[in-house]
Amino acid sequence: MIEAVSFLPITLTVNGVEVTRVVEPRTLLADFVRDDLGLTGTKVSCRLQVCGACTVLVDDLPVSACTYLAVDADGADVRTVEGLSDGENLHPLQEAFVEKFALQCGFCTPGFLMMSKALATENPTADRAEIIEHLEGNICRCTGYRPIVEAVECALARMRKVPSE
C-alpha cells in the first residue's frame, strides 16, 4: 500500500547549492525558490503558464515554476536567474539584454533569460525565426520584443565564438 503524505522532505540542487527542506505537496516551485530560499529574481505574473515570467530550468529544461510542484524538483538540478552568471561577469545573454535595451521594467526578464538559456543549450545555432518560435510563449509588455530578439541573436552568436559558455 502506497502511503499518502501531507509533508515531505525534498533535496535538490539550486544554482549549484544543495538544499533540503520539508514542504507541503501543494508548494509551488516558484514560491519555494522565492519564499523558502529567498531567490526573488524569479518573478510570478499570470500563474497560467502563458506569460513565462516564472521560467526556471529543471535539469536544463524550462518549466513554469508557478505551475510546477516543488516536490517534483526533488533530486533535480534547478537553475534560476541568480545562477545564470558566474558571479563575476554577466552571462552573454545578460550582457546582450543590457546592451540592446531588451528590457525596461525587467519583470519579464528573468523568464526570457532562462528560456533563452534553454534555447542556447538545445539549439545554439537558432536563427531569428527559431528564436521567435521558442520565445513566443513569453510576454513582455514594455519593449515591443524586437530588442529581445536582437539580444538573443547577439548572445547566441557570441556564445558560438566562445564555446565554453
Binding site: 502506497i2 515531505l8 516536490v71
Partner: peptide, 30 residues
C-alpha cells in the same frame, strides 16, 4: 493551491491501487 496529499507509486499496479474519485493521477500538472 488547495491542500492535498501526495502518493508516489512506482508500478502501474500500485498506481491503479491508489486511484479513486478523490485520488487522481497527476503527471505534468499543466
Amino acid at each position: 493551491l488547495p491542500r492535498f496529499d501526495l502518493l508516489r507509486p512506482t508500478t502501474v499496479a500500485e498506481a491503479v491501487g491508489c486511484l479513486s474519485e478523490e485520488s487522481v493521477p497527476y503527471c505534468g500538472g499543466t
